[in-house]
């Protein structure tokens, strides 16, 4: 039988408590968010499966629509590649694997540990949102580069192009909270994977891949009045310029304002739901 733990017999005794001072104060929101975001980005970069699979999937998707479906989809005076690429950039946040990552951290016990630490709890989710948004922006850049290779061109001028990219980042940030929420309620990484597909109707029943006018009449009001159509319309209008207003049926500013309002609503709703959920996991 071995001596109980507290007998001070070892030479290494007291070294932890003697060498490490308890921190003077708990970490703030930014320190917490930045620490968790850094870890999440490192995890992504160092997991080749994630890096490669994500890039390959989105490029494959792009090429299939560009070269297989594109010819059958009529987009009036606008070339299909110019119609498609802004849409892919705008909704990439809905394809991101944020929900799965959140569910994995819950399953692994990491969230239990984090919730036992003296941190502002919602800051963990803020860190996840920042990391997912950055990774998503990287994905958008890849989409744009491949897009240009297969014929996509910006017609709206440099200012509009930068504005469009900025909007894509805002949408990604907003959707990241939806994905965090799905991850938190899913219970497991596998379920999170499945739940991520639940946003597909939102993506496909929109103007992202086909003009809304080509859908049956009863579906058009739904497609016209949901966030993805507003977001895709805003990016498309900025990138393609004046020609699209006729095609899309509204002015550029109409789309931009609507898309930003939708982004704020999605962000506020899912950020508060997620924070509440995280606090009482």
């Amino acid at each position: 039988m071995t001596a109980p733990l507290t007998s001070p017999t070892s030479a290494s005794a007291r070294s932890i408590s003697a060498s490490i001072q308890a921190p003077a104060r708990p970490p703030g929101v930014w320190a917490t968010a930045a620490t968790y975001a850094t870890r999440t980005i490192k995890q992504f970069i160092r997991t080749p499966q994630l890096l490669v699979v994500n890039a390959v999937t989105s490029i494959m998707f792009l090429l299939i629509f560009r070269f297989v479906f594109g010819g059958a989809i009529g987009t009036g005076d606008v070339a299909y590649v110019d119609f498609l690429i802004p849409a892919l950039a705008a909704v990439s946040g809905l394809f991101a694997g944020g929900a799965v990552g959140v569910a994995e951290d819950m399953e692994s016990g990491l969230f239990d540990r984090l919730r036992s630490l003296p941190i502002p709890r919602p800051a963990v989710l803020l860190g996840r949102s920042i990391a997912d948004t950055l990774l998503n922006t990287w994905g958008t850049v890849i989409t744009l580069v491949v897009g240009v290779i297969v014929g996509f061109r910006v017609h709206g001028g440099p200012v509009a192009a930068v504005g469009a990219l900025a909007l894509c980042i805002v949408f990604a940030a907003s959707f990241s909270w939806l994905m965090i929420f799905l991850g938190l309620v899913s219970g497991s990484a596998q379920a999170a994977q499945g739940m991520s597909f639940s946003v597909f109707p939102l993506i496909f029943v929109s103007s992202a891949y086909v003009p809304v006018e080509s859908m049956p009449g009863w579906l058009q009001p739904i497609a016209n009045n949901q966030p993805v159509t507003a977001m895709v319309g805003a990016v498309r209008a900025l990138v393609i310029g004046g020609d699209t207003e006729a095609l899309l049926g509204h002015s550029t500013s109409w789309f931009v304002v609507r898309s930003l309002l939708w982004s704020i609503v999605i962000l506020v709703v899912f950020a508060s739901l997620s924070a509440r959920r995280f606090a009482r996991l």
Binding site: P23, A24, R25, P27, Y36, T47, R113
Partner: peptide, 19 residues
């Protein structure tokens, strides 16, 4: 976190303790 080194894991938690 499997993708981080042992040291990075500890530094991460140390920061979240407030170091």
């Amino acid at each position: 976190e499997p993708a981080l080194t042992g040291r990075e894991n500890l530094v991460m938690i140390a920061r979240l303790f407030g170091h």
